[in-house]
Nucleic acid binder design. Sequence first.
DNA 1: CTGAAAGCGCTTACAG
DNA 2: CTGAAAGCGCTTACAG
Lengths: 352, 352
Amino acid sequence: MRAIRRSTLKDVAKRAGVSVTTVSVVLNGRQDGVRVPETTRERVRRAAGELDYRPNQTARNLRQSSSRSIGFISDEVTTTPFAVPMLSAAQEVATHNGHLLFVVNLGHVVGADLQRDAIDTLLAHQVTGLVFACMYHQEVEPPPSLPDGTVFVNCRAKRGPFRSIIPAEQSAAAAAVRLLLDTGHRRIGFLDDTLIPVAHRLRLAGYQDALREYSVVPDPRLHLCSQATVAGGVAGGALLDLPQDVRPTAIFCFNDRMAMGLYRAARHRGLNVPGDLSIVGFDDQEFIASELDPPLTTMRLPHVEMGRLAIESVLDLDTDYAGWQPGPAKGSSVAMLECPVVERESVAPPTG
Amino acid sequence: MRAIRRSTLKDVAKRAGVSVTTVSVVLNGRQDGVRVPETTRERVRRAAGELDYRPNQTARNLRQSSSRSIGFISDEVTTTPFAVPMLSAAQEVATHNGHLLFVVNLGHVVGADLQRDAIDTLLAHQVTGLVFACMYHQEVEPPPSLPDGTVFVNCRAKRGPFRSIIPAEQSAAAAAVRLLLDTGHRRIGFLDDTLIPVAHRLRLAGYQDALREYSVVPDPRLHLCSQATVAGGVAGGALLDLPQDVRPTAIFCFNDRMAMGLYRAARHRGLNVPGDLSIVGFDDQEFIASELDPPLTTMRLPHVEMGRLAIESVLDLDTDYAGWQPGPAKGSSVAMLECPVVERESVAPPTG
DNA sequence: CTGAAAGCGCTTACAG
DNA sequence: CTGAAAGCGCTTACAG
């Protein structure tokens, strides 16, 4: 498109009657020795203004071999609404620190060579660093061409000296179930998913932790595996068909979409939420959790915090964050971010 | 992060025993005259492979004064799940054509100077072009520093020689209402929103077009303005409290979230969808439209198509697209993309 | 067929 | 206090 010739440092230098060195020093505000007197500075600034000078970032990149940009690679996170806040938080922090974000969605890119191409392209652009984000919490095999400083978000690299930022799933699940226990429930179901192995394992462990803490013996009949979808939640209605003395008075759902389905299943059975059945979800999914009737109590995934910390880590700005722990892989480290509970109206004490 | 010294053209040249010119020509596959013989080419390629050579895009950018990147600016589109498919389609087309996408979310950036900063930064990176995307269809005042070739998506620039890509709202609304008319409905309500002026005006016009086409006189009592939220949809239940002979047998909703609320309002009144009330939405919002009970018939916003065409336009690859029409502003042009109807199960013939 | 050289627009030792 | 010069890693006329 356009082919406007922008003015360069040289143009400004000529107009101000100084050398390009001086212009560069002034415009970049370098203070190593207060060398240039204010009168000269002023002259340079005026010339730059008159010529509407904008530095050519590309030239600067080449010279400094860095580009003030960060590559944000995702499996398909940018395809899903879930993690949108993560991306925008990342971008905000980047901008705030003078960096731009290249967003690359690997999507269903199959083939290691294509993945490698994408990474190579980013590297060819001299990015300061790379973020690798996943849609849902999982363990990933890091593509071989990934540089060491890469930060993984919402996933953990199976090997390599990488940093990973993940949600504290297990403690969040425990907190969810504890909320139910504190409200007086003892027969608490877990409507689970198994297709998302890491989250499944961790949330189940948290569920069991909380029960154990309250000396409640887990009843296997109350642990139902279904799919993490609305339809899967409707199918979870099977828990409500259990005999009266076994039937759960509260159900912790693997995610909000299942909770949405479970609402429907309860309604079909003439059960009132939370009067007859308390429900807690997971995700705090936008447009769902807050919009259900009644609004759903759920655990919020810390997408914003993860996106922010990821960029801060890449830029080595995370010095005030104390949560890094050594990870299983040699040289790796992990940050687990809390998932706060969002209390709404789907939990009440059990009746009778 | 990392400080690996990557090998350069010079390294490859030395290893292959040729000049950097030759290496550059071979590696870029320039064919202007089949100059370099295959044996030399092979030698160069081998050397490059052995040294794991990757071109430095930054140097190339400087030399060619273009950067094989595109700036994707949005008001807050990347903050909302609505238009995620737009972003990922844009990125896919860009990648496919050797370009990277810089994503910048203006968010609630107030102040023209900050907007200007964002645009300047992108321009400083020598982007090939700019896309300006909006969350919802509107008319925008283009920031003054925007270059002429900028493409507006899901919005229209109020002035300037820009290209804009927008959904064909009016004809889509007409199609939605026509669907209801064809099913036999005559008392068709429009649950409208007024906070989104452009879409409001266009969808209302489409609603009226369709009625007129079928010689149905619009009844002002059936046009209710509310908010484009679930709560606004619940409030739309007022339409259902109209006297029996006035009450609509079908309602066209401004968006899917309102439809979600209207489902709830209908249920509270013991009305069955679609048995007692047919409903058509707008947006085909993920996780909502398809997940309602019954699944919602709605108009799909062409986010994918808009994102794709935007990048193609910036790269002048849209030569096979014949839909550009002159726009109101001098030198501007507009592409209106169709919104296909997604038929699901919320429409049935009126009873009685 | 191949290479020497200029130059893209900056930054940064270094010299004066 | 200020400037001349080198150089970042490429591409591309141009010459041989």
